[in-house]
Design a protein around this nucleic acid. Structure first.
Length: 958
RNA sequence: GGGCCCAUAGCUCAGUUGGUUAGAGCGCGUCCCUGAUAAGGACGAGGUCAGUAGUUCGACUCUACUUGGGCCCA
């Protein structure tokens, strides 16, 4: 017997109930068990979520897709691994732990002890991985939550070692120098990405125009501008644009050179002496602004050509300090300029800078300006406001500092399109081999491929080091003799260790424990230490296609480590269980948020996979856009418009959230908000009402379908129509989901519900009302039941809770033989025998006729309530007549007329108009089609009538 | 400077091989229903599909350029 349906559709409440039902009856475990060992597999690879904070609503989007396709495949009997991943290591976690502990700088961390600090980081990951697990369950995300992978696992780190060694064997690993944005407070270099996200603020600085005497030309100066006077100590060149026009101006005794387009910066009266091309100013020697500093001795500052000089600000003569600026450094490399790097890690001047040595860069601007003035080099100084990079953690202004980092060489870029690169050239350039991998995968949307290719073509070498604490211990051992080696795993470390092994043994390969181990330099025999750097976290996430595809019980989780169930087997090679791995590699499907990942996770897995296996680790990649707030603005905790996952789950429920994500075009940003959600809910209410309608009357009648299907011979036209629509929809939905197009599947379902409600149920209500139980009533019940039952299974992967809620009452309560859960049923397949395309078309025509009837009533202001004698129609073809006749009962009822018939006196009532069908006219008349199309409507009513009667009419084109 | 995406009704968005009158929801107007009712339904108004040029018998759809917005790289 059916339970009555509550009036309100309360997602959070029903979800709690269903969750309990799933847990108590171990539904997920039963589903897994049912499909285990099946020949059909769904090979999915999860991109790890950073276990560092509670989830926001934006996390729920991708996770909805992950769950939806898993469930869809599982209902079809596919086996899967259901492995979720947590990203554990990296600065993100360190920053939060530092905040918790109230730390301000690296000094605080070192005073606290690296071991203590690293343990705190592990604790944090442990804590938030548990929170995210609970939240994911709340979303209805069915994963094997006991066996998630953690990127901090020894397997993961050692697998990266293996990868790095392989790179080193090819000679790709090198120690390089670059100028990086640097936070003097935190003592770290920041990546461009860290700055791009929220790293700029409006700042006012003292900027200076200075004059630099040209050697061998008396009283002639280069006029140069900078917003960062502290970098003048490291000036080695001045850049001019070779194609700009420069001017030589006279002010009193002095002669200045600057770009013509920047003359408004000159102070006071001046005369233009000469105009000259920038090219003619290249190669001049000048006296550097701080040539008296020890660090500046022996440099020969000169002017160089540079196409990036602009005329938007400054003087068109750009101060170049390769030790203090990224672009400067790149130009310096090209021009072979010397590099003067003035700052230490804390932002203080190093030895060799005279009175500046020991002073902090943040405090020297005024002194430097005074010094320039004293020496007669200052033209003038002024305040200048601009957007300046700051540290996203502590908001200190960043400086640019020369640092040494470790890189993986990505190989040369050839000056030609990818398609023209030869196999030989590809062998010599990793980046093109990665491109080959990219090309073998399917990217949804397809422009993702273009963007990845563009990134690969333009990317620099991969900077893999970071001067921090919590992360992959880079297995690079550097000896005092200059030689360095890369170790490929635990075994090699054990074999090569000459010192400190006992202090490391039993620990995870993290700082500070692993730092204790010294090896013997294979070149000079002296002990070599590991470099203190930790790894780029994208190495951690990039290795997961190799390190995490293990039998699930072998996967590392912090709990297992604590309980002793987890045992790291140091003798495992790569990949840990090759036979098992081969069954699940490559992933057939991955899905993540698009922006950012082209150069992060996608890039990392592609690169590592190309190096290790020479192929892509995934076959299909589905990318989705970002979640914004209701107004389309970025969600920010500080802006008070961000929505935590828990809040949304409590307020609107997981299923409504999931449905919103399913209805969204994956390539477009989603505007998430509660007003919007209410609209989606109202749409879903239609289905709720249909379900409620069915249950209400079935209860009254004591009706039970108990697995029966409607008797074909008793189906009414309307029954046959809705069953046809149902099966058409089932086919379309499957097709969409097979190509990972959730939106079209969702929209199709929504349209069906609309048809079911406004046409089938509304028109069939009386059949349910009548008091006697006859076969027609039963047929109506069984038809509506078939629609609901199928629909519920169809929607189950998208809205798993609600589908279960309905299924339990609709199906299970009256049929104990039915599967225990909707998720243990099969995914509906279209029954071709019930599809009647002609019927669908006919019904569409009928609905059109009804609509026109209503419109005609409205126009004459005659309410539907008032019956009319007859509806007259005139169809353009015999088929229309037939159809109208066939369905005249429906039409008469809907439009409320007593009779219906063809117009018997067409001449009096009908005026004919003709119109050209461009799809037919085009191919037939080609060039003249347009003329025909324009002429046809000029035909008189009589002419059209003749055309209709005789089948042809000759029309002359003017 | 290079690459990618977007621009369709007041708002949020659909529109997959180019082809009748370009669609939906919300909002708006006019009504209906009152046996799915703290619901539901009908009809209607509203669009030079950013602009220009091209390809084509035919372009919202393809190509080029322009403008505006967003992202990535330099």
């Amino acid at each position: 017997m059916y339970q009555s349906v509550p009036q309100n559709l309360d997602f959070p409440e029903l979800e709690k109930k269903i969750q309990k039902f799933w847990d108590e009856n171990r539904i997920f475990q039963k589903l897994v068990a049912r499909n285990r060992g099946s020949e059909k597999r769904f090979r999915f690879l999860d991109g790890p979520i950073t276990a560092n904070n509670p989830m926001g609503v934006h996390h729920a989007w991708g996770r909805t897709y992950k769950d939806l396709y898993h469930r869809y495949k599982a209902m079809q009997g596919h086996d899967a691994r259901y492995q979720n991943g947590f990203d554990c290591q990296g600065l993100w976690v360190e920053v939060e732990v530092e905040k918790e502990l109230g730390f301000k700088s690296k000094k605080d961390i070192e005073a606290f002890g690296i071991d203590n600090f690293v343990n705190q980081c592990k604790e944090r990951v442990d804590k938030y991985s548990k929170i995210q697990t609970a939240q994911s369950k709340r979303l209805g995300f069915w994963m094997d939550w006991e066996n998630s992978y953690f990127t901090m696992a020894p397997e993961n780190n050692y697998a990266i070692w293996h990868f790095l060694k392989k790179c080193h064997d090819q000679g790709w690993i090198y120690k390089g120098y670059d100028v990086m944005p640097w936070c003097a407070r935190c003592g770290i270099a920041l990546s461009d990405m860290e700055i791009a996200t929220e790293g700029y603020e409006e700042k006012t600085h003292k900027s200076v125009y200075i004059r630099l005497p040209i050697e061998g030309r008396d009283h002639e100066f280069l006029l140069v501008w900078t917003t960062t006077p502290w970098t003048l100590t490291s000036n080695v060149a001045v850049a001019v644009h070779p194609d700009f026009t420069y001017i030589k101006v006279k002010q009193g005794e002095e002669v200045y050179y600057l770009a013509k387009g920047r003359k408004e910066i000159l102070k006071g009266e001046y005369q233009i002496v000469e105009e000259l091309p920038g090219q003619s100013l290249v190669g001049l020697k000048y006296k550097g602004p701080f040539d008296y500093l020890p660090a500046q001795q022996g440099l020969k500052p000169r002017t160089v050509a540079w196409k990036d000089v602009t005329e938007e600000d400054g003087t068109g003569m750009v101060h170049i300090a390769p030790g203090c600026g990224k672009e400067d450094f790149a130009l310096g490399r090209q021009e072979k300029l010397p590099v003067v790097a003035p700052l230490d890690e804390a932002g203080a001047y190093i030895e060799g800078f005279d009175w500046l040595t020991g002073k902090n860069v943040a405090e020297v601007a005024e002194d430097i300006i005074a010094d320039l003035k004293k020496r007669g080099l200052l033209y003038y100084a002024h305040k200048y406001t601009h957007r300046y990079p700051v540290c996203w953690r502590c908001h200190s202004e960043l400086v640019f500092r020369l640092v040494n980092e470790w890189f993986i060489s990505m190989g040369p870029v050839y000056d030609k399109p990818y398609s023209q690169v030869t196999p030989e050239e590809k062998r010599n350039s990793l980046r093109y081999r990665i491109m080959d991998s990219v090309k073998t995968a399917r990217w949804i949307p397809s422009f993702g491929e273009d963007r990845e290719m563009d990134w690969l073509k333009n990317m620099g070498d991969w900077c893999i080091s970071k001067k921090r604490y919590w992360g992959l211990a880079l297995p690079i051992f550097e000896c005092g003799c200059g030689h360095f080696e890369v170790l490929g795993g635990y075994k090699e470390l054990r074999e090569r260790a000459v010192h400190g092994w006992e202090k490391f043994q039993g620990h995870t390969p993290h700082r500070p424990w692993v730092d204790e181990v010294k090896i013997k330099c294979s070149k000079c025999g002296q002990p070599a230490s590991r470099i203190p750097d930790v790894g780029n976290p994208w190495l951690d996430a990039g290795i997961v296609p190799y390190s995490t595809i293990l039998p699930l019980e072998d996967c590392y989780t912090p709990d297992k480590e604590k309980s002793g169930k987890y045992r790291f087997d140091p003798d495992r090679g790569y990949p840990a269980r090759r036979e098992y791995w081969e069954q699940w590699f490559p992933a057939e499907f991955i899905t993540e948020c698009f922006p950012g990942q082209f150069r992060n996770w996608f890039y990392a897995i592609l690169t590592m996979s190309t190096v290790l296996e020479g192929q892509t680790p995934f076959q299909t990649l589905l990318g989705h856009a970002l979640v914004k707030d209701e107004k389309g603005e970025e969600m920010h905790k500080s802006k008070d418009n961000s929505i935590p996952f828990d809040e949304a789950a409590d307020r609107i429920g997981a299923d409504l959230m999931r449905w919103i994500f399913c209805c969204q075009n994956a390539t477009q940003n989603l505007h998430f908000g509660y007003h919007n959600a209410a609209e989606f809910k109202r749409k879903l209410l239609t289905l709720h009402n249909i379900y409620s309608f069915y249950i209400t009357y079935a209860r009254l009648d004591g009706f039970s379908p108990a697995g029966r299907k409607p008797d074909q011979s008793r189906l009414t036209l309307l029954d046959r129509w809705i069953l046809s629509e149902l099966n058409l929809m089932v086919g379309a939905a499957r097709e969409s989901l097979d190509s990972y197009e959730a939106m079209s599947a969702a929209k199709r379902m929504e349209a069906f519900v609309e048809d079911l409600s406004t046409w089938y149920v509304r028109r069939s209500r009386r059949r349910f009302w009548k008091s006697e139980s006859d076969s027609d009533k039963e047929t109506a019940y069984l038809t509506l039941y078939a629609c609901l039952e199928t629909l519920v299974r169809l929607m189950a992967p998208m809205m798993p809770f609600w589908a279960e809620e309905i299924y339990q009452n609709l199906v299970r309560s009256v049929d104990p033989k039915a599967p225990e859960s909707v998720h243990l049923t099969g995914y509906p397949a279209a029954d071709e025998s019930l599809i009647d395309r002609r019927l669908s078309e006919e019904m569409a025509l009928v609905r059109k006729v009804v609509s026109m009837g209503h419109a005609a009533r409205k126009e004459s202001r005659i309410k539907v309530r008032q019956p009319l004698a007859r509806l007259l129609y005139r169809g353009k073809s015999l088929e229309v007549w037939t159809v109208i006749e066939k369905y005249q009962d429906i039409i008469m009822d809907e439009v409320n007329v007593k009779a219906i018939g063809p117009i018997d006196d067409p001449d009096r009532l009908i005026r004919y108009k003709a119109k050209g069908l461009v799809s037919k006219l085009g191919p037939r008349y080609k060039n003249q089609a347009n003329l025909v199309k324009e002429t046809v409507p000029t035909m008189t009513s009589e002419q059209v009538k003749q055309l209709v009667q005789e089948g042809s009419f000759t029309l002359s084109l003017v």
